[in-house]
Design a protein around this nucleic acid. Structure first.
Lengths: 202, 202
DNA sequence: TTTTTTATTAATCATTTGTTTAATTCAATT
DNA sequence: AATTGAATTAAACAAATGATTAATAAAAAA
């Protein structure tokens, strides 16, 4: 199902993704993409028809990668709920440190153009994931307080992702450079699972 | 200190803010702003010199309003810590329902241009606010678990704001219209304070 | 009223931007 | 070696965009 891209196409895609993440769709010009990927301007349209089509491809792949990794942890058969939460934190915090511009980019472009998300499959899978089922089982057993699963899932993601989106503010407030900021985020790998458990425990 | 704006200037500012929030800086054209505010294109430059200057003014005012309201609750002398948390949730959730595009807009533009935030005064005030002091007192008394104040503050904001930024995703996942989505957010006015307290209580 | 300053307008300028064209180079096939 | 098709290039096009100009209208000051 996945298309194989030529070397040139990949060069264009890599440069385009980098620029889109940094500056957003509108502020990125096709000439910048051409320059950054060291290809002739016309090749962008030759291979990808238009700037918008190129963007759609990159957006789709980015979302798909992210959601796949998400569902993967959420549906692991072997792990307990608390382990899943821990693994989720570790995985996403590492992922976001590696690509810190991604969340703001995705949510911002999604705001301008919610359509690009409608095409994603695995979206609904999250609410039917093993993670959610395990949580609901815990509620039935009386271990956890009752809470709409959507809030439960949202809270986990909020505590993980939002601080990254606030990085310009946090860096300013606490006078942190990127390395110090990342250390702060890494601390949260251990803390967030504890907080979440406390939140849902009776 | 605050400049008084003429009727025409305010018409331009209102239209510009609305469009900037919806589409971002780059995707908004001066002609759109002129049309939306029903003024002649040249008046934009006549009053505000350039699109960028206009944007800076709007960005500054928006941030200033937001931070002022924030600090106001955080520094209330009469209220307890738990009341402050509750009031914060109520205020920000109402504010964000009223202007749901604001958080994503601000954080996205801040990413592209962190400078606009450097000029803000009240930023540092947050970490020295009554809210933080009261929390630290609680830690000393042994009521609350020890936790870097920056994490404490970040967690509150994360749980409040991030779900709004995810609204396109949440709406899709749960098949919600805007009204239903807002109901979901209003539920959180009561829940978030409880969660936060549970997180910090021993 | 006359003069002067301010506000508003239509038209235009100079760039920028996404896209296309037509020519050329390169690689594979016959 | 000749031919064919794909890849690459420089140049150009048309539309959009931020900004300015010069003229006019409106308001304020004299």
């Amino acid at each position: 199902m996945k298309k194989e891209y030529s070397e040139t196409e990949n060069k264009i895609k890599t440069a385009a993704k980098s620029l889109f993440l940094k500056k957003g769709y509108s502020a990125t010009t096709t000439r910048e993409i051409a320059k950054e990927s060291d290809i002739n301007l016309a090749l962008l349209n030759y291979y990808f028809t238009s700037k918008w089509k190129l963007f759609e491809i990159i957006m789709f792949e980015t979302l798909y990668d992210f959601l796949s990794k998400m569902v993967e942890v959420y549906n692991d058969e072997k792990t307990s709920l608390e382990e899943k939460i821990k693994l989720t934190c570790e995985k996403y915090i590492d992922m976001t440190i590696a690509e810190p511009l991604l969340p703001t980019f995705v949510l911002n472009e999604l705001k301008n153009n919610p359509t690009s998300f409608l095409k994603m499959p695995s979206t609904k899978m999250i609410m039917k994931s093993k993670l959610v089922v395990q949580y609901q089982e815990g509620v039935k057993k009386g271990i956890y307080t009752k809470l709409e699963p959507i809030h439960f899932v949202t809270n986990i993601m909020s505590l993980i992702v939002f601080p990254f989106m606030c990085s310009p503010i946090l860096k300013k407030m606490e006078k942190l450079n990127t390395k110090e900021f990342n250390t702060l985020m890494l601390e949260r790998k251990k803390s967030i699972p504890k907080w979440i458990i406390k939140m849902i425990k009776k």
